[in-house]
Structures are given as C-alpha cells and as structure tokens.
C-alpha cells in the first residue's frame, strides 16, 4: 500500500519535472525572442542590450535559465512579467480564484448530473433510459463554445436569469455569475460521464456476485449500493478524474465566452502580448493541476479495488 503510494508520488514528480522542461523549452525554442518584445522597435546600444539581457538572464545557457526559473517557481517566484513589469505571481493570484471556483462548480455539476443520470438510466425503465440517452447524445455532440453561446443567448439575453459577463463578488453573486459558465463547461463531460456510469452499472448488474447478494436475501437497495454501484465506481472515478483534469484546459474557452478574468483568459492575453514569463507560469500551473488530479485518481483506485493495492492489477 505505502509502496504503491510512494511509486505514484514519485512518478508524479517525474512527470511534473518533464512537463516543466517541455513548457520552458518550447517557449525557448519558439520563434520571436524576448529581446524583440523588450525593445520593440527601439534601437538600443549594445551596452543597454547587454544590461537588459543580464537583468533577465537571457545571456545564460538554457539549463541555467531553466534552473533559475524552476527554483524560483518552487519558491513562489514565477518571474517578472515582461509586458507589465509586475511579478507574474501577482497576476496569477489575481486570476486564479475565478478559474478555481469555475472548475469546482463544474466538477460538482458533472459528478452529480453524470452519476445521477447514469444510475437512473441503468436502473430505470426503458422509457427513462431512452430519454436520458437521447439527452446525453445531444450533450456529447455540442462543443463547449457552442453550448456557451446558446446558454448566453437563451438564459441570459432572452430570459435574463443570469448575467452574461463578469465573475461577480460575494458568494451568491459569484454563484449566479458562474452558473452559466459552469454549465457550459460541464455539459459535455456530464453527458459522457452519464454514459460511462450507465454502462458500468449495467455490467455489474449482470455480475454473478449480484445474483449471490440477491440469493442471500439482501434487499434491493443494499444490493444496488454495495454490490452494483460500489463495484461500478472504478470506471466512474477514472472518467470523472479525467474530465475534471480536462476542465482546467476547457476554462480557456469558457472564460473567453463569458468575459471572466481567470487563468485561461490570462494565458490567452499573455500569448498575444508575447509575455513569456506569464505564459510559462500559467502553462506550468495548468499542466501541474492536470498531473495532480490524475495522481489523486490513481490513489483513489487503491481504495476502490483491493486488487490494485497489492499490485495484482495495473491501474
């Protein structure tokens, strides 16, 4: 058990390091240099150029630059924004809350709707099942940006139930502002999770151990909870984890559509402004969150399936 956890954590650290090298390296190799952004169309004397390069460590070899950047990042120093001349950590801190709230809100919606509808579909009658399947069919075929526009058009502009822009302040206003973005973000994933839950439940329902549980006289609700749903959880948790990790990237589109100043928005504007330090920092955070969520899912497996705990089965 502990060995398994240790192995998971070690592979997480390695994965994070590798992705940080990739993130830093890809921007290092990308066309256009930091100099061009810093000096724009100004012509500068070699002395000035040299001084500025030294200030941003641009004259150092790649691995030194990378190490400076990484050790700084680990201490919370994400560098200085080239475009704004302010610490990147400040800009990230300002943008992060909206994205975090949005991801949490959408994750809750995905889990409740996906698992709830999936279970209802697997256990309910033929008509209920057909209805839910039709709805999820639509859900999985509407791209997030289309969903965002449709939701805005209908609930915000036509009905006026929800605001169309901004993140709001204070708990209730926040929820009101973030509902449509969260729904837009959750729609596809919830529909997909519904299907996975339904299939997984149906597979387990056919299982011989379910017949045993019934043969022993266990009441139906217990059979479903302890022998069907409990066993169906593994694929459900896997897909939920992947979906939540995927949401972090999905926020870029939704924040744009609903005018939210989150990390996605920050990433987009920083790319446009060629603000290297900020792009690197945001990319590192998004990838890091993805890797961490996936590791959490792997660890959750060990609680769900005792066979994985002992390394008898690969997660």
């Amino acid at each position: 058990m502990l060995r398994y956890l240790g192995r998971q954590l070690l592979s997480m650290v390695i994965l994070l390091l590798l992705s940080s090298v990739l993130i830093y390296g890809s921007l290092y190799l990308a066309p256009g240099s930091a100099d061009a952004v810093l000096f724009g169309n100004h012509t500068v004397t070699p002395a000035v150029r040299h001084a500025v390069e030294a200030q941003y460590h641009l004259n150092q070899p790649f691995y030194v630059q990378y190490w400076d950047w990484l050790s700084g990042a680990l201490q919370g120093n994400l560098g200085t924004s080239i475009a704004f001349r302010t610490p990147v950590s400040q800009r990230v801190a300002a943008a992060a809350p909206v994205t975090i709230y949005l991801v949490i809100y959408a994750s809750i919606l995905i889990t409740i709707a996906g698992v709830g509808l999936g279970v209802a579909s697997a256990l309910g009658g033929r008509r209920l099942d057909a209805t839910i399947m039709a709805v999820t069919n639509v859900g999985t075929s509407v791209p997030t940006f289309v969903a965002a526009i449709l939701l805005l058009e209908f609930f915000s502009l036509k009905l006026g139930w929800f605001p169309s822009l901004g993140a709001g302040s204070g708990f209730f206003s926040r929820i009101q502002h973030l509902t449509l973005p969260a729904v837009a973000l959750a729609l596809w994933a919830a529909a997909y999770l519904t299907r996975v839950t339904r299939t997984s439940m149906r597979d387990e329902l056919r299982g011989e151990h379910v017949a045993t549980a019934r043969a022993r006289g266990l009441r139906n609700s217990l059979v479903i909870r302890r022998h069907v749903f409990r066993n169906a959880l593994l694929p459900i948790v896997t897909v939920s984890g992947l979906q939540v990790a995927g949401l972090i990237a999905g926020t870029i589109i939704v924040e744009q559509a609903f005018g939210l100043n989150g990390l996605g928005q920050l990433l987009l504007t920083s790319v446009e402004q060629k603000d290297y330090a900020t792009v690197q920092a945001v990319a590192l955070i998004l990838v890091g969150a993805f890797v961490v969520v996936n590791t959490l899912v792997d660890i959750a497996y060990t609680f769900l399936d005792p066979r994985i705990r002992l390394g008898l089965r690969e997660a």
Binding site: E208, H209, T212, A215, R216, N231, D305, P306, R307
Partner: peptide, 20 residues
C-alpha cells in the same frame, strides 16, 4: 425465505463473491 431457509452455492466462487 432466502434469508433464513434456502441457501445457494454457485459454480464459480471467484465470480460469486464480490471482489471489493
């Protein structure tokens, strides 16, 4: 009846006993 009077043993215990 299943609780107290009739018990059933199945063919493949590995499939019949919930692994989790």
């Amino acid at each position: 009846l299943r609780l107290r009077r009739i018990g059933m043993i199945f063919q493949d215990p590995r499939a019949a006993i919930n692994p989790v």
